[in-house]
Amino acid sequence: MKIINGTAADIDIIFSLYDAGTSYQKQIAQKHWLGFDRALIENEISENRLWKIMVDNQVTGVFSIAFTDPCIWKEKDKDPAIYIHRIATHPDFRGNSYVKHIINWVKEYAASHDKYFIRMDTGSGNEKLNNYYVSCGFTYLGIIETDDSDELPAHYRGGTSSLFEIQL
């Protein structure tokens, strides 16, 4: 398994993983993704912030990172942190603990970029997922209400999210 930057050539694969993730979320959770703006993903690719997990030359998962997330993290956004977004795993590869691999990779990446926190959020109400993130090393920080901001993807607007953090 290796983690490398996604490229423009991967865009269809990336969206197919998001679609598969959305279908899965609809089966197991109260909230699900409502689609993503293609320009957002293209921007993350061009800024080398979208990563793909490769196993035997196959894209088995994707995730993005950000260095700011003020709409969700408010005042805490001033901390030197990396934010993980949109983890999506190919259905044939679920159950392989990719989040743990991502965290280990992000820890090394954070250290080389002078970051002291790894943070992520997820739609609130999915206790199984919350417990999984805690088992991966995150501290559960609680639930926040999100604004109805156009800066947020649609599934965030006017809802609640659970916050998670690892202090390095």
Rank of each mutant, 00 (worst) to 15 (best):
M1D: 02
I4S: 09
I4E: 13
G6W: 01
D10R: 09
I11A: 06
D12N: 11
I13S: 06
S16A: 12
Y18K: 05
T22G: 00
T22R: 15
Q25W: 10
I28S: 03
A29N: 07
Q30K: 12
H32A: 10
W33R: 10
A39I: 09
I41P: 01
I41V: 15
I41Q: 02
E42F: 13
E44L: 14
E44N: 11
I45M: 06
I45A: 00
S46I: 06
E47D: 04
L50S: 03
K52M: 01
M54R: 01
Q58H: 09
G61M: 02
T68I: 09
P70C: 05
C71V: 04
E75H: 05
P80R: 07
P80C: 03
A81S: 05
I82W: 02
I82D: 01
A88S: 13
T89C: 04
T89G: 01
T89N: 01
D92N: 12
G95W: 10
G95R: 05
N96Y: 11
S97D: 06
K100T: 04
H101G: 06
I102W: 12
W105N: 01
W105V: 04
V106A: 04
K107G: 00
E108N: 13
Y109S: 00
A111W: 03
D114E: 14
D114T: 12
F117K: 15
R119F: 11
M120W: 13
T122H: 04
S124L: 04
L129V: 15
Y133I: 13
Y133C: 11
S135L: 14
F138C: 06
Y140W: 14
Y140K: 15
I143N: 13
I144D: 05
E145V: 14
E145K: 15
E145G: 09
S149R: 12
S149N: 13
P153F: 08
A154L: 14
A154M: 07
G158T: 07
G158C: 13
G158R: 07
T160N: 12
L163R: 10
E165F: 10
L168E: 00
